[in-house]
Amino acid sequence: MSDQTIPNYQHVADGGDAAVEHGASDRTYVMVALFLAVMTAFEVATSYTKKALGPFEDLVLLTLMAIKFVCVALYFMHLKYDQALCKRVFFFGVVVASLVYCGMLATFHYWAPHFR
């Protein structure tokens, strides 16, 4: 008992097994990168449609952006393979930032300028 100076944290670790596997194969990464490149191409193409999509253009662009964001976070930043805590901490920051700044812009009637 007296020589137990090293804490054994195993019994408080949540979901320890999940993290043993370390990321995907290089092939997966290349595929993800190709997918991201294609998405970017779509985005640029959408922005050149000269408003053919009308008000949906922004929506399409924002959706593509969100897909790219999540892809990089999940695959390149290993969030898919790491423990859930990392994901929670990071997306908590993303969500707080989005809500707070969207709220701020809302007080300026940014989202509905004709109510100004």
């Binding site: 804490p7 054994n8 944290y9 019994h11 408080v12 805590l85």
Partner: peptide, 10 residues
């Protein structure tokens, strides 16, 4: 606080 709690301190 997240990472250095003593063993058993849930």
């Amino acid at each position: 606080i997240i990472n250095m709690r003593a063993p058993g301190m849930t």
